[in-house]
């Protein structure tokens, strides 16, 4: 359980870094983003084009393909849900 938490924390940290640099978010530092920050709309204010970059980012950095948007829709909600999505796929 503790190991899972550690791995998730590591994924969340990387994810925040990739999102800030990959999406060129101005005025946002990775460490300032909370785990439950909503990605789209309110929260980080990402849009559909940022979603494209996140999909590519997941593919390149973790080898995770978003194939089923029923799962993906929930996964793209926040940093936390996205990190869990990545973790689950890595453990499959």
């Amino acid at each position: 359980m503790e190991q899972k938490e550690q791995e998730l924390a590591e994924i969340r940290k990387k994810l925040k870094g990739f999102i800030v640099t990959g999406l060129s978010l101005e005025g946002v530092k990775p460490e300032e983003i909370k785990d439950d920050t909503v990605l789209f709309g309110e929260g980080l204010g990402l849009d559909s084009l940022d979603a494209v970059e996140i999909v590519v980012l997941l593919q390149r950095n973790w080898g995770v393909d978003v194939k089923d948007m029923n799962d993906g829709r929930k996964a793209f909600y926040s940093i936390d849900t996205l990190a869990n999505y990545i973790y689950d796929h890595l453990k499959k």
């Binding site: 494209v52 978003v66 948007m69």
Partner: peptide, 13 residues
């Protein structure tokens, strides 16, 4: 979802 962007990315890949 996302204007079809997710699926577009997938098939381009």
């Amino acid at each position: 979802d996302f204007g079809g962007a997710i699926e577009i990315v997938k098939v381009l890949g």
